[in-house]
């Protein structure tokens, strides 16, 4: 039972992490190859604060705030550069994070931080807490899509120059996407820290960034339900199959490439297309009858 609970908790945290990247990449079309660094910022913030005696429920928003602030700073680089270069910049953020943290004595350096305080909800309680947040973030994501902010994100993602000529403050919207996405990444990171109770720089390295990216791309960038499904499946695979854990980068990298080549809109859109095909054929038969 304990094993299932920890599995479900990890799933919930992964869903939050994937939905957070989906706001940047899926909604606003801005690539980020260093998203795990923002989970890291949230994780370290919350771990340090709770170790200093600050209550967990205060440490969580602080983690989101710091992560979101740094996210906006990185977002500024998305204003200056085009897509391919933004990929490199955000990848740099990932290496910068691990590189910097590794050298900071007060953050535990290479050894990381252990004995991170337990929120005190019990295992099941914490799982339900994570689920509650994951559901809230799902609802929020669906709401954004319906709002005029989501409508504008769609336009910016499709064509920035056109958005500009429709009077859209493209920079403002991009920064908003980065702020939201990285703040929720901070939340996912903080939850991770209090779940595992140990973090080190490698917990938020490039491989983790690619893992989150795979969830979003395979799920179908922008599709909330697709991303959730991919996060659920991909977060438990490495726990079930040791060889996937050993060859994470290879497996996820391969999956990423396969999806990009076969169905750039993600597996979910492939399923929708198949469904439509079958459904439409049935409809056609009905019409013939």
């Amino acid at each position: 039972m304990g094993y299932e609970i920890s599995l479900l908790t990890i799933m919930g945290i992964s869903v939050i992490g994937a939905l957070s990247l989906n706001m940047i990449l899926g909604f606003c079309g801005q690539i980020s190859l260093g998203h795990a660094a923002f989970l890291g910022i949230g994780a370290y913030t919350s771990a340090m604060l709770t170790k200093a005696g600050i209550p967990f429920l205060l440490a969580l928003p602080a983690a989101m705030l710091l992560s979101g602030l740094i996210g906006v700073i990185v977002g500024f680089s998305s204003l200056r550069v085009r897509h391919d270069f933004l990929a490199i910049t955000t990848m740099g953020v990932s290496f910068l994070f691990t590189g910097l943290v590794r050298k900071q004595e007060f953050l535990g350096g290479e050894m990381g931080i252990a004995a991170i305080p337990d929120p005190g909800y019990g295992k099941v309680g914490f799982m339900l807490f994570v689920f509650g947040l994951a559901i809230a973030l799902t609802l929020f994501s669906l709401y954004i899509k319906r709002s005029w902010m989501g409508f504008t994100f769609d336009t910016v993602a499709d064509d920035e120059d056109t958005a500009t000529l429709l009077g859209v403050n493209v920079s403002g919207y991009k920064l908003m996407a980065f702020a939201l996405g990285t703040a929720f990444a901070g939340l996912a990171g903080a939850l991770y820290a209090h779940n595992v109770k140990f973090i080190d720089p490698e917990s938020f390295g490039f491989i983790e960034s690619i893992t989150i990216l795979s969830m979003v791309v395979i799920g179908g960038t922008g599709s909330v339900w697709g991303v959730i499904s991919a996060a659920v499946v991909l977060s438990v695979f490495p726990l079930w199959f040791q060889f996937i854990d050993d060859y994470k980068l290879l497996v996820y990298g391969g999956l990423l490439c396969a999806v990009m080549l076969l169905s750039p809109e993600g597996v979910s859109s492939l399923v929708v297309k198949l469904f439509n095909k079958i459904f439409k054929r049935e409809k056609a038969i009905h019409v013939n009858n």
Partner: peptide
């Protein structure tokens, strides 16, 4: 959509 933050609170089209 002219106010980035406020656009979040508008849904009616």
């Amino acid at each position: 959509t002219d106010q980035v933050f406020l656009s979040l609170f508008k849904t009616n089209r």
